[in-house]
Amino acid sequence: MKILLSGTASDSHTWNLVYLGLFLEERGHDVVALGPCVGPRLLTAACRRHAPDAVVLSSVNGHGYRDALAAVRALRAEPELAALPVAAGGKLGIAGRSGETEAARLRAAGCDAVLGDGAGDLEALGAFLAARAQVAA
């Protein structure tokens, strides 16, 4: 499965992306790593160029809910990207715990999975991608 791995617009952290790149490759996925500070326009352009099977957005700077929301809305606004599976995860808010309201808003905008930053969330990411791989196969 081809996965486009990306940071979010205001987030310059990269260790999360280095780790996720290795994590996804070890599970047999083909990873396109966009790196940090990817705004909605660059993200949609990259999705059109690389035609991935799924998008993984990772954010740890506390602006994740806001940035991922803009990213997902931009993807969903493009007809050919409207059905592209998208998962967003990491430390998405600044309060130290996930905000249920923000997560619900993110799902409502079309994000297929909203994840935290624990070991269980990685498993959930793996399961999410495995389920999409079956659908794709």
Binding site: A9, S10, D11, S12, C37, H63
Partner: peptide
């Protein structure tokens, strides 16, 4: 803040 840091003053 990280909006200002990346030059996104509108953000």
């Amino acid at each position: 803040d990280s909006y200002t840091r990346v030059g996104d003053l509108a953000g």
